[in-house]
Design a protein around this nucleic acid. Structure first.
Lengths: 218, 218
DNA sequence: TTGGAACTAGACCGTATAGTACGATCAAAC
DNA sequence: GTTTGATCGTACTATACGGTCTAGTTCCAA
C-alpha cells in the first residue's frame, strides 16, 4: 500500500528523505552530464556525487535515459522564464530602438551562459537518439520566446512602429540576427574564447540595427 | 627504408592496394561515424564495413580520434566548394535580387543535406573534446563562404547596389538570415520532418527580402 | 620466382559500464 | 519500541570497446 505519504501540510513533502535524495540525484546528474556529456557520464559517478547508493538512483529514475531527459527539462525550464517577461513589456515601448537593444542584450546574456550552451550541445548531440529531447528544449526555450515576440511585433505593427508582413517571420529574423553568430561560434569553437560582455553587446547592436533597417518604419 | 613508393606516374599511386584500403577505411568510417556518432562507433565495426582487418586500420590511422578528425576534414572539404563559385560571380550581378535568391537557395540546399547536418551535429557534440575539430569545420566551411561573400558585398556597395557599413557583418547577417531557422530546427528536432524543397525556398526568399530591406539601396 | 611489405583473422588484455541482487542498516510513523 | 519502507554498500552479471600481438597469407615489383 502507499506508505502513508505526508499529506499536503505546509510545503508538500518538502523535507522528506525521499524528496531530498531525489533532488540531490537530479543536481548531481545535471552537473556531471553537463561536464562530461551523456556517454561520458556513468551512473556510479552520479550516485557518488549525490552521496547516494546506486540502488536509490534506480529507485527514483528510470535508468540513464530517464534521468537525462528529466535533467534537460528541468534545466531549460529554470533558465527560460528570464527573458519572457521583457518580451511582454515590449509592445508598449516608447523608445523602440532602446528597448529592442535591451531585449537583445538580455537574450544574448541568457543564451550564452556556459551552462545553457553546454546543454544545447548535449541536446544536439543526442537529438538523433532521443528526438523528444530536442522538441522539449525548443518548445520550452526558444519556441516560447519567438511566439511571444511575434505577438509583440504584431502589436507594434498596428501601432505604426514596425512594418512587417508576417510577425512570426520577423520574430525569427530578430532572434537569429541577434544570436546566430555568437551561438554558432560557441557551438563550433567549444569552450575556448567565450565572448565577453562588450563583444556580445556589439552583436546585439548590429542585429538590432539591421532588424530596424529591415522592419522599422522609415 | 621507404618501400619504393610508386612514383608520380599517371595518377600517383591511384590503384595501389594501400591507397585503396585507406580509402575504403575512410569511407567506412564516414558512414559509421555519421550514423552512430563518435562514441557509438567501434573500430571493429569500421574495420568490418571496410572489409579490412583491424590491424590495417591502425596501420593507416592514428587511432579512433585521428580517424575521426580526418573524416571530418575530408567531408567538409568535399561539400564546401559547391557554394563558393557562385559567391564569386555575385559581384558582377545584373539582377541582384534574383542572384541573391539563387545563392540563398543553393546555400540552403548544400547545408541542409542530411549528411552535412549530421556532420555538424557530430562536430558540435565533440567540439568540447577536440576543439581543433570545430575550428576546422568552421574555417573550411562557413568561414570561407562568409569571407568571400563579404568581398563580393563590398564590391556591390561600391557599385551602388548595396548600402552597408561593414561588409563582414552584412555577410554574416545574410548567412544567418537564410540558414539559421532551418539549421537550428534541424539540429534540435533531429531527423524527423526534414524540410522539403518548397519550405527551404520560402526560408530563402524571406531571408533575401529582409536582407535587401536592410542593406539594399532604396 | 622471390623477397619483403601489406594484409588477415582472431585471440587477448585491461578496463569500463548499465543494471541487478541481497542482506544489513537507517529513519520515521504509530 | 516496533514496524515498515527507504537506503546503503558491495558484489555480481553481462557486455562492450580500444588497442596490441601473433602467426600465417596475399600482393606486387624487381
Amino acid at each position: 500500500m502507499s506508505p502513508e505519504w505526508p499529506a499536503a501540510t505546509s510545503e508538500p513533502g518538502e523535507h522528506h528523505r525521499s524528496v531530498r535524495k531525489r533532488r540531490a540525484i537530479l543536481a548531481a546528474a545535471t552537473s556531471v552530464f553537463l561536464e562530461k556529456g551523456y556517454p561520458g557520464t556513468s551512473m556510479d559517478e552520479i550516485a557518488a556525487q549525490a552521496n547516494v547508493s546506486k540502488q536509490t538512483v534506480y529507485k527514483h529514475f528510470a535508468g540513464k535515459q530517464g534521468l537525462f531527459t528529466e535533467m534537460v527539462s528541468a534545466t531549460v525550464d529554470e533558465a527560460s522564464g528570464t527573458v519572457l517577461d521583457e518580451v511582454l513589456n515590449l509592445e508598449d515601448s516608447g523608445d523602440l530602438e532602446a528597448d529592442l537593444g535591451d531585449l537583445a542584450r538580455r537574450q544574448l546574456a541568457a543564451v550564452m551562459q556556459p551552462r545553457i550552451l553546454q546543454l544545447r550541445r548535449l541536446v544536439i548531440a543526442e537529438a538523433g537518439r532521443f528526438p523528444e529531447l530536442g522538441r522539449a528544449f525548443y518548445e520550452r526555450g526558444p519556441g516560447r520566446t519567438v511566439t511571444a515576440m511575434a505577438a509583440a511585433f504584431e502589436r507594434l505593427d498596428s501601432r505604426g512602429l514596425l512594418d512587417l508582413d508576417d510577425p512570426q517571420v520577423a520574430a525569427q529574423h530578430f532572434n537569429w540576427l541577434i544570436m546566430s553568430a555568437p551561438i554558432n561560434q560557441a557551438m563550433l569553437l567549444g569552450q575556448e574564447s567565450p565572448p565577453d560582455r562588450g563583444e556580445l553587446d556589439r552583436f546585439a547592436e548590429a542585429g538590432v540595427s539591421a532588424f530596424l533597417a529591415a522592419y522599422g518604419r522609415h
